[in-house]
Design a protein around this nucleic acid. Structure first.
Lengths: 230, 230
DNA sequence: GGCAAGCAAATTGTATCCAATTGACAGATT
DNA sequence: AATCTGTCAATTGGATACAATTTGCTTGCC
């Protein structure tokens, strides 16, 4: 069932929508009418709905009964929970890789970092996706498909979180940090590798400005004064 | 989106099928024709299909193109991977609970253990389900919904693994071990609590007889000779 | 008697169709 | 003026109908 297509239309639609959300083309809160999406991709609503089921399962969209689907807007609480689980899972990934890295593992990782560097300046949607895929790649290298799947899901949701809360998307995942993590794994330094990963994830969370926008709509508007006394 | 119903038919079908698989009424490898399932529950194939999408996502069923859906038969490799991730996640659960257990947490856990003891002798499908739900309950008590969701998924898949490989299903999860884990958490003994959990999960895996049936279908049949020369 | 090709039945993949629910707007009422 | 209510449009929830694909069986041939 490799995340890749099974050559069914809904899988294709699923992949496309997922990509669009990751790359922040579809922004949090946006409405996704089944008709519109279907017309756009040239398939019927049936297909779109199947894709929606999966996307909702992964927390990328939410559907409201008889109202339709919307790109999810993770709450701050949800964001913290996701980062916490991500911490836990990626720690496992690092430990597993130190224990046993597959033959061509380092080559693959370093090749990926190179491609990240290649698009570093442009800071486009591609760079966002590549940053996430680095972590997915690491997870896949563990050889544990279940672990890889969860990491992949979590990383995707993190992209959505960054889209929701983050201001600057530039260098969301510092490429240098990726390199350092590889080096620590190579050195077999579990302590340092997990610490680096923890720091790296913390940095991602910080750049997402997770602390800041907890203001409610009331708080925000209150800064603009009043028209009449309360 | 709490695992509970959103009052849509496919959610209901999903829950029912999930339960049936957990309780081993639907056994691994069984075929699940959309028509049959639909007729049985009084809904159309459309609904069943939506439920199938989610079940497949969780690894409880597999679908083959133009062939239909089957209750999944996890491979041994898959089983090991699942237990590994389970280890990782439940360790996090235990640590989180030691750090902060909600007010009525212990009451809820002990009440659950009591209901487990209540059906101890009968060893029916209910006992299997309750054993898993103990772990799900713990995960929910952490307050991290994402973590709880993953644990729930993993626990379900473990039930399926046990159904696939296990011989004796009696006392799959020793209730006593559950009590001991609660005690260790209450004592704030992280070392002991995680060790107990690790041992407990190892025991579950052992009872599932994970080592034994590793024979492939080819290996098994080869013992029965040949009809014609290769 | 065994094997291959072709046909028929069954089952899934997809599209379209009808019904039910929701949200918004307008008008009436307090 | 504000609130409540009834109607209407838009959109989803679900079922049915049609097309495509696979499987198993039958038939003919070696």
């Amino acid at each position: 069932m490799s995340e890749a297509q099974k050559n069914t239309l809904s899988d294709a639609v699923y992949d496309l929508l997922r990509r669009a959300i990751i790359e922040q083309a579809l922004q949090p809160g946006m409405r996704l009418p089944e008709d519109t999406v279907g017309d756009q991709f040239g398939v019927s609503r049936t297909i779109v709905r199947h894709a929606f089921v999966r996307l909702e399962n992964e927390g990328l969209i939410v559907t409201k009964r008889n109202r339709g689907a919307f790109v999810a807007e993770p709450s701050l609480e949800e964001a913290r929970q996701i980062f916490e689980v991500r911490h836990c899972l990626e720690r496992e990934v690092v430990l597993k890789l130190i224990d046993r890295m597959p033959a061509t593992g380092y080559d693959a990782l370093e090749a990926h970092v190179r491609s990240e560097k290649a698009v570093l300046g442009k800071d486009g949607p591609v760079s966002i996706r590549l940053a996430g895929e680095f972590h997915t790649l690491m997870a896949e290298l563990t050889g544990n498909a279940v672990l890889a799947r969860y990491v992949s899901e979590i990383v995707t949701r993190c992209s959505l979180i960054i889209a929701t809360f983050g201001r600057s998307h530039s260098s969301d995942c510092a490429v240098d940090e990726h390199s350092q993590i590889i080096a620590a794994i190579r050195a077999g330094d579990a302590e340092r590798a997990t610490a680096l990963m923890a720091h790296h994830l913390g940095a991602v969370a910080d750049r997402a400005d997770l602390e800041e926008k907890k203001d409610s709509i009331e708080t925000i508007l209150s800064r603009y004064g009043r028209v009449a006394a309360p």
